[in-house]
């Protein structure tokens, strides 16, 4: 029983009612599953396992959704099972896709003596450093892992400086300063104030100015060295407005993504578990 139910008789009753409903739902779920999937009357073992798998998957899906109503024991079981399976999968793949092909096979399955020598030449240092990293688990020798961290973090930091300057700063700056010129030079020759003029000439020019104002005001909003007063206050307010428009756009876009996830699950439940074909 959850810890938050002390001796309140009302909540104890409610708890039992809820558990009863949960058990009932479980029975209904199993009945529907047996009816639609029928794992006992399949042509071979593979088909049976697939039917059982689909029932399990559907059960887990519904259990996860039950959290939306309230936390319950089935959800906790499902959640922990998921964590365990994910963990096991990860452990296997650390081995299968990382350590085995990169460390174990080149050394222990080297086809020839000279191949072994080459492998040892290239792999000894990183393997030693890799084991140094594992000392992090020990309280006493944890400091040895600092060398591994030093190597990894130093390397990452050194690489980051020129590459981020290139991708985040230079490329973006250059893209930000050229368009107005492009908008003017590449503008189609259309009569002023016509529909095409608005779309072809005025739109991009105004858009470029909007981008300029937006970028500068957002940068200024995150400027901490001066107090935002008078002009600064106005500029940073404009910055906030731009931020809000962008957050709204992101939110709107994200609604789409999050719903797609749900649509995906609904398609799974209806199509694969209940076997209702979509029209």
């Amino acid at each position: 029983m959850p810890d938050d139910l002390q001796d309140n008789p009302k909540s104890i009753i409610r708890h039992y009612v809820e558990m009863g409903v949960l058990a009932l739902l479980l029975v209904v779920f199993l009945a529907v599953s047996l009816w639609r999937q029928d794992p006992l009357h399949q042509k071979d073992a593979a088909a049976t396992m697939k039917a059982i798998g689909l029932i399990l998957a559907a059960g887990l899906t519904l259990t996860m959704y039950s959290f939306l109503y309230r936390d319950n024991p089935l959800f906790k079981i499902a959640e922990n099972l998921y964590v365990g399976v994910a963990l096991g999968y990860m452990a296997m793949f650390v081995w299968r896709q990382a350590l085995r092909p990169m460390v174990y096979e080149p050394i222990f399955h080297a086809p020839t003596w000279s191949a072994l020598q080459t492998a040892l030449l290239h792999k000894t240092v990183p393997i030693i450093v890799g084991f140094m990293l594992l000392t992090r688990l020990s309280r006493k020798h944890g400091w040895i892992s600092r060398y591994a961290y030093a190597l990894m973090i130093g390397w990452a930091a050194g690489l980051a400086i020129p590459n981020i300057t290139n991708t985040y700063i230079l490329k973006q700056l250059y893209a930000a300063v050229t368009p107005l010129q492009q908008a003017i030079t590449s503008a189609p020759n259309t009569p002023a104030f016509s529909y095409d003029w608005f779309v072809g000439t005025a739109g991009p020019v105004v858009g470029t100015l909007v981008i300029l104002i937006g970028t500068v005001s957002v940068l200024f909003y995150f400027f901490f060295s001066v107090e935002h007063k008078k002009v600064g206050r106005a500029v940073s307010t404009v910055g906030i407005w731009f931020l809000m428009v962008s957050f709204g756009a992101s939110f709107g876009y994200t609604v789409m993504g999050r719903l797609s996830l749900l649509i995906g699950r609904v398609q799974f439940l209806l199509d694969e578990w209940l076997k209702i074909p979509s029209t």
């Binding site: 700063i169 300063v177 010129q181 003017i184 030079t185 470029t208 500068v216």
Partner: peptide, 28 residues
């Protein structure tokens, strides 16, 4: 480092504004 970043931001803001003005003028 926050102050350093502010200097960087100021530089970027100046380049942005001046860059657009210069490039637009250069197109003309």
């Amino acid at each position: 480092s926050l102050r350093g970043q502010d200097v960087g931001k100021a530089f970027i803001m100046i380049v942005l504004v001046l860059g657009i003005i210069l490039f637009t003028a250069a197109a003309a």
